[in-house]
Design a protein around this nucleic acid. Structure first.
Length: 491
RNA sequence: GGCCCCUUCGUCUAGUGGUCCAGGAUAUUUGGUUCUCAUCCAAAAGAUCGCGGGUUCGAAUCCCGCAGGGGUCACCA
């Protein structure tokens, strides 16, 4: 019989500590695919262990803050189903979840640094610092504030920036995504902890917040990897433990080089939802940008992602955002949806002409276009002719590669013959199919000719679902009326 | 310029010394599914695994160098 011994028990206990991840955007605008991916990964990591996913606003730069951005960020997360357990609007055990409301904490910890001689007031003006910086730049050297430490620093008081006093050294650390990383002492520097406006910098605030909110793993973008040694130095000065670090590579814009950015037209994720992309499809797509489970599976349900996701399997190179792949995934999800469910989701996307149509009729139409739909916003161009008579469009037969060879009189004769037969039909799919086959035999025409004439006459659209299905849904009255309209347009 | 990261079909990727003259998906092209569009099925084309050395019987996989790309060097995050 094996008995548990203390060290193992302790290790077990520590490893059982709750997983807590966070998404900490600054409220400076909307969220694009790149931003949401960081949130998604953090959410997945929390969900797969029954841990907590936390939203925190990093609003210490008041100049950059954008009105309404907070609500927009919250709406984006909710729309994608990345619900958080603690956050600015719902609170939690470590509230508030807004940095500008946590200044007391930062002051307390800043005082600890001052007392330990690890922070100093920096009375130099931004202009003075710029001069020094320019000097370093012109010498093609990296700017290090610690090379220019002021000799005598006054006691820190509000209105004056507080700067970290670093103790440069080489670091090696493990990153959950990037693996083992290392740097020399030359990158560790004195950075600003608290700005002259009294608010902390991100560099200081996030360390304190993550500590106090008991974050177990920080998941963030690549842009922070260079400052990691500074953070390691700060953890040591504060004498606190650091969370695990996971640095995910950027998602690249369409050029495949620069990171996806709003400047270069990266779309708001909410815009994708507005265009009729499904949250699950978007989540699947975003997760598969840089992650896969090692098998050949491409489609992952939300539950499968939660079960199978792992930071170790996130790639280290940036992935290019290709909307065509998203289109495919979304089309796939649309096809998989039960008709009733799809019908509810497309409610706001019908063409205006459909406003008086019955649910029954719209469902019939929807079932015909379901496999053609890549995103809901395409619905009008696919279905308008089901709801309104489009004007006769001569271009459709004049440019048709089979029909343009025929005289208009021939077209007219064929259409009249078709009409005669369709007038006898009950317009069930079965009867229509039979009659269309009969017509092929009787006229000796290829489907490419006969069906195209009828299809163009009844839809006036360049593309439509199968002919018998389309006619059946349009119904006898509408179909025959449109054939008559076409006949009178043919001379 | 310093430091750090990255580099497999157009794109997302599999691949951790032999089963890889590199697999899947998507995109593209072609054929089939009684017309169009789409779906579905089938097929084609598409990567000298960034380049150059080395280690090894054998390298996409290990080592070294180089190049290219990216990130960072704020009182921004």
């Amino acid at each position: 019989m094996v008995t548990s011994n203390p060290p193992l028990f302790v290790a077990y206990f520590v490893s059982m500590k709750e997983v807590r991840t966070r998404f900490a955007p600054s409220p400076t605008g909307y969220l694009h695919v790149g931003g949401i991916r960081t949130a998604l990964f953090a959410w997945l990591v929390a969900r797969q262990t029954n841990g907590k996913f936390i939203l925190r606003f990093e609003d210490t730069d008041k100049k950059r803050e954008v009105e309404g951005a907070r609500e927009h960020l919250i709406a984006s997360l909710k729309a994608l189903g990345l619900e958080y357990d603690e956050g600015p609007d719902i609170g939690g055990p470590f509230a508030p979840y807004v940095q500008s409301e946590r200044t007391e904490s930062y002051r307390k910890w800043a005082q600890k640094l001052i007392d330990a001689g690890r922070a100093y007031a920096d009375t130099r003006s931004p202009e003075e610092l710029d001069t020094i910086r320019e000097d370093a730049k012109s010498k093609k050297k990296a700017f290090l504030a610690r090379d220019y430490r002021p000799e005598n620093t006054p006691e820190w008081k509000s209105g004056v920036p507080l700067r970290f006093k670093s103790e440069p050294k080489a670091y090696e650390w493990h990153d959950e995504v990037m693996g083992d990383l290392h740097t020399g002492p030359e990158v560790v520097d004195d950075f600003i902890l608290i700005k002259s406006d009294g608010l902390p910098t991100y560099n200081f605030a996030h360390i304190i917040d993550d500590l106090e909110m008991e974050i177990s793993c920080i998941i963030r973008g690549q842009e922070f990897i260079a400052s990691q040694p500074n953070y390691l130095n700060l953890y040591e000065a504060l004498e606190i433990e650091r969370p695990k670090i996971a640095t995910v590579p950027h998602i690249l814009g369409p050029d495949g080089k620069k990171k996806l950015s709003k400047r270069d037209g990266a779309k708001d994720v909410l815009d994708y939802l507005r265009d009729g992309f499904l949250p699950d499809a978007l989540v699947n797509f975003i997760a598969s940008l840089g992650w896969n489970d090692g098998t050949e599976q491409e489609i992952f349900s939300r539950q499968e992602l939660i079960e199978k996701f792992s930071l170790e399997r996130v790639g280290r190179s940036g992935a290019t955002f290709d909307e065509r792949r998203l289109l495919w995934i979304n089309g796939h999800y649309i096809r998989e949806l039960p008709l009733e469910e799809l019908y509810e989701k497309v409610a706001d996307f019908w063409p205006v002409e459909a406003k008086d149509a019955t649910d029954e009729y719209k469902k019939q139409v929807l079932s015909l276009v379901q496999e053609r739909l890549k995103f809901f916003k395409e619905l009008p161009e696919l279905t308008t002719f089901f709801f309104t008579d489009l004007p006769v469009n001569p271009g459709l037969w004049q440019e048709h590669k089979q029909l343009k060879k025929l005289e208009q009189s021939e077209l007219k004769t064929l259409l009249e013959e078709s009409k005669a037969s369709l007038e006898q039909s009950d317009f069930s799919v079965e009867d229509l199919t039979n009659r269309l086959n009969e017509l092929l035999e009787k006229t000796g025409q290829k489907p490419a000719v006969l069906f195209s004439i009828i299809r163009i006459a009844t839809t006036q659209a360049p593309a439509s679902p199968g002919l018998a299905d389309t006619l059946a849904v349009l119904g006898k009255e509408v179909s025959l009326k449109r054939i008559d309209q076409m006949l009178s347009a043919l001379t």
